[in-house]
Design a protein around this nucleic acid. Sequence first.
DNA 1: TGTCAGTTCGCAACCGATGCGAATAAGGTG
DNA 2: CACCTTATTCGCATCGGTTGCGAACTGACA
Lengths: 138, 138
Amino acid sequence: MRSPVELVDAFRTQGLKVTPQRQLLFRLLHDNTQHPTADALFAQASAQMPGISLRTVYQTLSDLTAMGELQQVSFDTGPAHFDPNVADHHHAVCDVCGAIIDVYVDGADQLAIDGLDGFRPASASIVFHGSCAACAGT
Amino acid sequence: MRSPVELVDAFRTQGLKVTPQRQLLFRLLHDNTQHPTADALFAQASAQMPGISLRTVYQTLSDLTAMGELQQVSFDTGPAHFDPNVADHHHAVCDVCGAIIDVYVDGADQLAIDGLDGFRPASASIVFHGSCAACAGT
DNA sequence: TGTCAGTTCGCAACCGATGCGAATAAGGTG
DNA sequence: CACCTTATTCGCATCGGTTGCGAACTGACA
Ligand SMILES: [Mn+2]
Ligand SMILES: [Mn+2]
Ligand SMILES: [Zn+2]
Ligand SMILES: [Zn+2]
């Protein structure tokens, strides 16, 4: 995701308005590696801007996703997580604390595959489960 | 998942009862490679047993999952899919028709990984997106 | 056949997310 | 600066998928 100041320009040139709510979310998301949910962002936003609506958070998140500034990732059946890292990468989920960590996998595209007769893969997503450094102890 | 006759025994020895509803679902799931949703199974079941409840389908699916006879898999944000194949395998999802195909990936456990400092992976799941043989044309 | 724990099934509730629309505010224009 | 137009905010209703609850029912064993 681009920086807040760049996003201000990007929004204006698209005929979109730059509101305080949006600017706050730009700031909360920029360089954020936590993969927050809409609810988590709403909680953080509410602390700085009481009265902001969860609806507005959802709205802005889907605007940013549509503009390619965010990636939406989902695990299992829980709520969606939002990822300002739109580079090609994968994730490791800590089953203890729920942390989500960016992972870069070499050779993900040339995985030796068996069983897909004629299936043409366009993309692959890999999710590791396990325990993160903090939860694993050591 | 074991065969319907084996499941009858397994259920009885666990103090669980063998009802017509459960037996129907045993049959619908055995050797099923379609990865059906609860709703899809409910539709099939209703055709053979009008009046069966969606609630009962959910109930039986979660019983079977708890017994290790089924695996629950979810993609994106849609409904859960149920998989009688409990072997270690992965999936390919056709973005055109929605088909879900079993995939066996060699060397999935020794993927060259970068970025996870201290994360201890216990399992990995890989999901390919693309188009299936039928939808790809060729 | 009787007993009783396990099961079915309808309904309410739940969660995450989206549709709708009135009130509001951004931001360009005169 | 005042005004106008259009986008946005935000509360509320609604949605799809799933689970909780509990009264009525039924399988299984004695
Ligand atoms: Mn990420
Ligand atoms: Mn499968
Ligand atoms: Zn952890
Ligand atoms: Zn297809």
